[in-house]
Each structure stands twice: as C-alpha cells, then as structure tokens.
Design a binder for these strands. Sequence first.
DNA 1: ATATCTGCAAAGACTTTGCATGAGA
DNA 2: TCTCATGCAAAGTCTTTGCAGATAT
Lengths: 157, 157
Amino acid sequence: MPFRDGTGPPWWQGKFRGCGYRLTIPREAILGVLSKTSKHLSAEDVYLAVHKAYPAIGLTTIYRTLDLLVQIGLVFKFDFGDGRARYELSEGPKGASHHHHLVCTGCGRVIDYTDFIDEEVELLNRTEKGLSKKFNFRITNHLIQFYGLCDRCRSKK
Amino acid sequence: MPFRDGTGPPWWQGKFRGCGYRLTIPREAILGVLSKTSKHLSAEDVYLAVHKAYPAIGLTTIYRTLDLLVQIGLVFKFDFGDGRARYELSEGPKGASHHHHLVCTGCGRVIDYTDFIDEEVELLNRTEKGLSKKFNFRITNHLIQFYGLCDRCRSKK
DNA sequence: ATATCTGCAAAGACTTTGCATGAGA
DNA sequence: TCTCATGCAAAGTCTTTGCAGATAT
C-alpha cells in the first residue's frame, strides 16, 4: 500500500514483519543502500555507504544484517574470487533486475548481463524440476557465472 | 604415450612442461590426490591426504600449488559458501567428468549431477559465443550451481 | 516489559607473504 | 649452475563471537 506521495513504503517491510524480525534503523539503512545501487557491494562497501548517514552503525551489524537478509531471501551473496563476499538485492520493487555475471579473471571486473537470460532461465527451471525430483531437493536458487578475460586485460598481453 | 603396462604416465606432464613449470614431488603428489578422488577437497583436505605419503610437504605449498593448477586450468576452484575454497580436477585423463553442483544450504552437502548437462552445456556454449562477441571477452570457463535444501534438511523441519 | 538487536573489542579461520634453504632442468 | 620451488613462521584479511547496553513491539 504505497504512500500518497508516490514515494511508497519500503517494499520489504512486509517480508520482514512476516518473518518476525524487527525493523530497525540499521536494517533499513542497509536495505536502503542496497536498493540504491546496481553494484556488487562488499560488506565493507555497504558499511562505508551506511556510515555516511549513520556513523554509529558498526561493521558487525552490517555482517549480521547481510546474513539475515540472505537467509530471508532478500539478498544474494556472491563470490567473485577476490576473497570477499559481494551482496546484491535479489529483486527490485518490481522484481525487475534478474541478471547473471561475467567475471574477468584478470582484473576482477564483473559485468552484469541480461542477454540470453530468458533462455537460461527457462532451461534452469526445467533443470530445477528434474533435479528436485531426482534428488528430493527443494531448490531455491541458482548461480550462473562466466569467467574469462575482459577486453582490457586481453590487450594488456 | 602411455606406458606399456597400461598405467600410463601422469597425463598432466605435457601440460606442465609446456608452461615452463617444474614437475616436482609436491606437485605430482597433489595432482595424485586430486586425480584419485571425486570429492570436493579443501586445501586442508589435500594437505592431509598428501601428508600421509609426504609428511614434509607443507600447507603453504598446497596453497601455492593449487593456485598454480587453477591458473594452468588443470583445476577448478569452487566456493560452496562454507568459508573455504574447494578444488577439483577440471578434467580426468579422458576429459570424462564434467558435472555441475547442487548445494544444500542447510548442511552444506554438495551433490554432483550430470543430468541435463548436455542441454546445459549446449546453451552455455551458445551464450558464451554471444557474450564473447558483445563484451569482447575471452571466456574460458563457467560455473553453474543450484542451491536448496536436501532431503535430510527438509525433513528436519 | 522483554526478547531482540547493536556496538565494541577480541577472537577465529582461511590464505598469503618474506626469506633462507633446497631441488629440478 | 642457476633459476625456480619449498617450508617455516609470521602477517594479513575477511568474518564471527562474547557480552553489556540499547531498542522495537
């Protein structure tokens, strides 16, 4: 139920309350940061961004909250091979931003792509069904990443 | 060129020499361990296994060697979300063992599956071509994993 | 009112680095 | 021989934990 001014309420409140978790300043701040970027933020990135508006919020809380958000399914956690975890909102307000990643093993750059997503997702859904049945798994999520050298790194040598 | 007795020479020697790297006892031992298992070994797992036959080989060497093998492309490095990296030979002597992973987010169990692999790989190849062209990437590798709850964890609650 | 959440500091876990010794080609 | 590889110890990073005080409902 959006506000009259069109800014809308934080769309995640429902999901939060439904799980019996408290909606606190730090949690809202962290979700705010994540929802305003399309980058792949590390815990420290989130901390620094949150820190600007709420200097009192500590890194520990960032880690704990991110873990919680991952558990709830509001956030995805990625490993791009650089030794720190990256976090991304799993869906926008409109569930709009599904994408996969292209990771440069040279410089660590990560490119989001949405090309071929439809075919990929279709195949993934089929595969999910089959795997669920065969292994009696309840599949909740998938990960696809491609690795290689980006144009810059290729020309470097 | 296999030995007459059929045991064959370590099939990776060629790849090794070709890259100008030395073929040492620790490196052979580590490849030996990896080639004799179908499990997803952590650096410490490899260390312990190697340690039985060669107690002098240290954990540092394991890490350095695994890194090297990943660079050469002989080994894949995975992250299953439990905080430690896992390593797997990228191909058997016959290039036989391509598979993807099903990861239980409850207990961390990892199941290898080869079902649907053909369709998946076919789609991935197509996608790779498209992405390579669009982003001018040289794609060398891909990662697919499914996440969910295994049968045991589902019945736990 | 009270079970949850937070912040700080310290601990923990995995991985990397420095440097002198040892070993492959 | 001479560069590359190894082992040990120490350091480095990211992440988690313990606990007292603060907070949402």
